[in-house]
Amino acid sequence: MNTPEFGKMETAWCPGCGNFGILDSLKLALEALGKDPHEVVMVGGIGQAAKTPQYLSANSFCGLHGRALPPAVAIKMANPNLTVIVNTGDGDSYGEGGNHFLHNIRRNVDMTHFVHDNQVYGLTKGQSSPTTLEGMVTGAQAEGSQNIPFNPVLLALAAGAGFVARGFSGKPDHLQMLMERAIRFKGYALVDIFQPCVSFNRLNTFAWYNSRVYELDESHDATDRLMAMSRAMEFGDRIPIGVLYEKALPDFHEKNSSLSQGQVLAGRRNDPALVRRYMSEMV
């Protein structure tokens, strides 16, 4: 899809891949929010999903596998005027980058984390990821995946995230709405997005997701953490999508004395008089 600001680029994804829907929803969300490409920094790790920053017109930082979050939060620390968005895979976010996932929830920098959760390693051709369901046979799990699947939204809630949502690439309008809310949210926002991988995940297909997902309605109180956790544990015949939890928390910048007044570190200098004073204190 082409949009006026964020453009259209040639992609290297398989036809029918859920990533297309996510990319389109993202571009529409950014347009709807009135974002200028120059103020947006797209950050990715490595994987199929992590190529997303390459496919729209904005600043981009395509780093290392599993390492999308550390540079993303630091970019925001350096310049709070930037809108920092991570698009990357389930393997990248929860596997190789698991430690960064945990601790950046705690750090609560104002940024958005879209995880293209295809429950598989796409780029490396189909091995199990942390969210792969038990029993799925892959090239590396010849007897089927035997580990307990990881529940990212439940973990994010347990770790204290202020914004936790789940979406589906097959529900583009709903996904766009989630993305807009997540980007607007002040603090770390996680949206785990079901994304069918037509080439390597024959179990969690479009139809598999489509027949299970249902949209959360008013009966869900997104400010109730316990209710959010019980909804987060629904992962069977029915799986809720929508904002599971949203609660404003003081973010990193508010708590950091060097950033709390909206300071931009980028391009700033240190005061030589201060260096001289510290030196004189060492006399």
Partner: peptide, 22 residues
Amino acid sequence: VVEQAEDEIAAINMALGASYAG
């Protein structure tokens, strides 16, 4: 900004992000 990172991988990747941003 002086930040204790969750590990050294994060530390250097954070430094790279901050440097990219100027």
